[in-house]
Design a protein around this nucleic acid. Structure first.
Length: 444
RNA sequence: GCGCCAUUGGUGAAGUGGUUAACACGCUGGUUUGUGGCACCAGUAUGCAAGGGUUCGAUCCCCUUAUGACGCCCCA
């Protein structure tokens, strides 16, 4: 048997409906914030990621899918969304658009050659947004609140926002040096990974899981102490705007983002749900004022955010958030003989065009089995086609719930369904029944 | 890249170095000459991830590969 590739997933059935729903909600919220959709290619020049994300990051040094195409070009499957968006911004000269800043969002698959585990796949779907062309701290706050609002809109309650600032390049470099100076005399007391990190990315030592209780680590210099005045003011402004936007957040000086291009504001949004695996970060982002220039474009301040949809969907499931996913059809058409079957085919098409969700029998089941099938499909109504009825221009309709049967005129079927289904909907809106799961969507 | 555990019908799974691989659900048919969801009866893996090895004999032991779960590194 040919199996799917490691760490990739087939999406179908109920799960696919959930993803589609999440996609729709993302579109809806993004539209309100006036972000426009952008789709960039999954394949890009290898160089884009090497120059953009940083040669030393693991993501680029050992986790990309690289190949040489038939024309000898070095291609990489995108491991994240930002680099492609910035490439597009430069290539399409969006910086020349009078309508600044450019606010875009994307939603697509990314590829990382990693060992799969809980919350991590090789093919992952992320949505994210980028604001290109503004250094206003309000954009930082807005991107964070936008992300939070998407989670809220979907019904997630247990989320936590952690923010930090890396400062501008000058502050960042000074801090990095201070850290190296601080840790170097004691590095032997730390784990092997940390010894390696001291050389490659000393900021990472700060959130080491093994050495987290080490007093030396706890007393390590904090980013905030190394900010120059401008960076500190900027960070304060971001916090002021977050308060205006009523976003609850915590400052976590240990947040270090994985990609080299970040400076100033960085943030992560965690799901605080029982049962989430080791990877409980739903999404993260930050400001990257240097990336555009680094990729050969004009100096352009930008900020962005990205979220793994797989993790988001898991969080929704773990929090048991009710979703408006319908798994019902309006009508199932049953038949036995060929004449009835032809009429069923014709009638189902007519009714579908009239706006109803209609299904019928395709594999020659017995009438009894067709009833079971209608039941499985959660058909609200069942039409039992009978040659004799049809000859009289009539059809027998059965309400699945009440078991009531009525013989009605074929000419009246659309009117009949409209009325009956409309009544049901009204009942649902009043929500007289116990919704134990996913039939109703309650606004808070 | 490293570690640990796993892989048995449509599904959830039990199980053993040796004639017919439990049980449950589902599915199909019947009891019911065209009305289901209940009940009862019958049928439903020549097969235990793939390949190789050990053995008189392997689903069970060993090796390799693939995939899955979880963790480390790293990251969303």
């Amino acid at each position: 048997m040919i199996q799917k590739q490691k760490g990739c997933n087939d999406l179908y059935g109920r799960e696919a409906k959930i993803w589609k729903y999440v996609d729709r909600m993302i579109d809806e919220v993004m539209e309100k914030y006036n972000y426009t959709y952008i789709r960039t290619p999954i394949i890009e020049a290898k160089e884009l990621f090497h120059r953009g994300i940083g040669e030393t990051t693991d993501i680029v040094s050992k986790e990309t899918y690289d190949f040489v195409d038939r024309g000898g070009r070095e291609i990489t499957l995108r491991p994240e969304g930002t680099a492609g968006v910035v490439r597009s911004f430069i290539e399409n000269k969006m910086y020349g658009d009078p309508n600044q800043p450019i606010k875009v969002y994307y939603n697509g698959t990314m590829y990382r050659y990693e060992r799969p585990q809980s919350g991590r796949d090789r093919e992952l779907t992320q949505f994210g947004m980028e604001v290109l062309g503004s250094d206003d701290p309000l954009t930082d706050a807005e991107v964070i609140s936008l992300a939070v609002n998407i989670y809220k809109m979907l019904g997630l309650k247990e989320i936590k926002v952690n923010i930090n600032t890396l400062g501008d390049n000058e502050s960042r470099l000074r801090y990095r040096e201070a850290l190296v100076d601080y840790f170097t005399p004691h590095i032997k007391e730390f784990c092997e990974d940390c010894q390696e990190r001291l050389k490659k990315n000393p900021l990472r030592i700060l959130d080491c899981k093994i050495d987290k209780d080490n007093a030396i680590l706890k007393n390590a210099p904090k980013t905030l102490e190394y900010l120059n005045e401008e960076s500190r003011d900027r960070f304060e402004k971001v916090q002021e705007y977050l308060e205006v936007l009523e976003v609850k957040y915590e400052i976590d000086p240990n947040i270090v983002r994985g990609l080299d291009y970040y400076n100033h504001t960085v943030f992560e949004i965690e799901a605080k749900v029982e049962g989430f695996g080791a990877n409980n970060v739903l999404g993260g982002g930050g400001r990257y004022n240097g990336l555009c220039e680094q990729l050969g474009g004009p100096k352009t301040p930008c900020i962005g955010f990205a979220c793994g949809i797989g993790r988001l969907v898991s969080a929704l499931a773990l929090e048991k958030v009710p979703l408006p996913i319908t798994e019902e059809i309006d009508l199932f058409l049953m038949y036995v003989n060929e004449e009835e079957k032809k009429y069923a085919a014709y009638l189902s098409q007519e009714l579908r065009m009239a706006g109803f969700i209609v299904d019928t029998e395709y594999i020659g089941r017995s009438l009894k089995a067709q009833f079971k099938q209608a039941d499985r499909l959660n058909a609200k109504y069942i039409a039992v086609l009978n040659s004799e009825d049809l000859d009289r221009n009539e059809i027998k309709m059965k309400n699945s719930k009440t078991k009531e049967e009525e013989i009605i005129s074929l000419d009246a079927i659309i009117y009949y369904l409209d009325e009956k289904l409309g009544m049901e909907e009204e009942e649902e809106n009043h929500c007289s029944h116990e919704c134990s799961g996913n039939c109703c969507h309650h606004d808070e």
